[in-house]
């Protein structure tokens, strides 16, 4: 592949590699630096320059962060934050997938009155992201008593026109005869969905899951609004709360630890699901 792209001469190959490595370093360096910083004491961090190699405080820093040593967020442990964020991210990812698959299924495979109206209504909501409808949504959540609950964190973010459209496009590539063959075989709508559509959508679901998990994990505005109690914070919100305007008030070592821990789960998801993810993006199974 590299040959096809940049020619075969040794010089151009070397050049390409140098450029690529440089790019990797530039992207990776801040992450490395954060990781290094998370292993030094607050004093070391506040006295520049920061060493380029890991320090001796690793275990201590991580234990303190996890056991709730961060006063600025009310002594809530990072483990609790991770749990919150995981629940929210999983909830959003699964919720979005379930809802959008169900609506795409209805739109593609059933003939009902106002079918196209429904489709366009869903399509139009693309123009209404969370930020635009944030006030009414907040009001609804307050009225329903969902402030500071997982439901309040997850539900408003679940409806997804994008995912619905993606599934719709995919379902349209499935030959109608497959649906008819299943009908003749005696499969009702639910069985067809479960036995045929779901397995055929597996790679698409996996790809979407990765994207949506990260989307949910990195949510900022909505969790900020809908949570008051420190114990319901997501890790991103907690990170923001830990940082004070005054440098000295900020426990930078613990912030760095939290940063590292906040990055890890999405990275893990991507690494673990990489094969499926790529498959889902490039291939439509025949």
């Amino acid at each position: 592949m590299a040959e096809g792209l940049v020619g075969t001469s040794r010089r151009s190959l070397t050049l390409a590699h140098v450029l690529l490595i440089l790019g990797c370093v530039i992207v990776a360096f801040p992450i490395y630096y954060v990781t290094v910083a998370s292993t030094h004491s607050l004093r070391t961090i506040l006295n520049p320059p920061l060493p380029m190699l890991p320090g001796p405080e690793t275990i201590e820093n991580y234990r303190e962060a996890v056991s709730g040593g961060i006063n600025r967020i009310g002594g809530v442990g990072v483990d609790r934050l991770l749990l919150n964020t995981t629940i929210v991210a999983l909830g959003i990812a699964f919720g979005k997938i379930v809802i959008s698959m169900a609506s795409a299924y209805a739109i593609v495979f059933f003939r009902f009155p106002l079918r196209m109206v429904c489709f366009w209504l869903i399509f139009i909501t693309l123009m209404l992201p969370v930020e635009v409808r944030i006030l009414p949504t907040y009001k609804v959540m307050v009225d329903l008593g969902l402030i500071d609950t997982y439901a309040g964190l997850i539900l408003p973010l679940i409806a997804s026109a994008t995912a619905t459209l993606l599934f719709r496009q995919f379902f349209m590539t499935i030959p109608n005869e497959l649906f008819e063959a299943a009908r003749v075989d005696g499969a009702g709508p639910w069985r067809f969905f479960k036995d045929i559509l779901l397995p055929l959508s597996a790679t698409n679901i996996a790809a979407l899951f990765v994207i949506l998990f990260i989307y949910g994990w990195t949510q900022y505005l909505w969790p900020l609004l809908v949570t008051n109690s420190n114990s319901m914070n997501t890790i991103v919100i907690a990170l923001r709360k830990m940082i004070s305007f005054a440098d000295a008030d900020t426990p930078w070592d613990l912030v760095m630890v939290t940063c590292v821990l906040a990055i890890l789960p999405p990275v893990l998801i991507v690494v673990l699901m990489q094969r499926w993810f790529v498959k889902g993006l490039v291939e439509t199974e025949k």
């Binding site: 030959p175 005869e177 497959l178 008819e180 063959a181 045929i196 055929l200 199974e285």
Partner: peptide, 10 residues
């Protein structure tokens, strides 16, 4: 029996 067979691919 359908023209394009309509076998379940998975």
């Amino acid at each position: 029996v359908f023209q394009n067979y309509a076998l379940y691919p998975h």
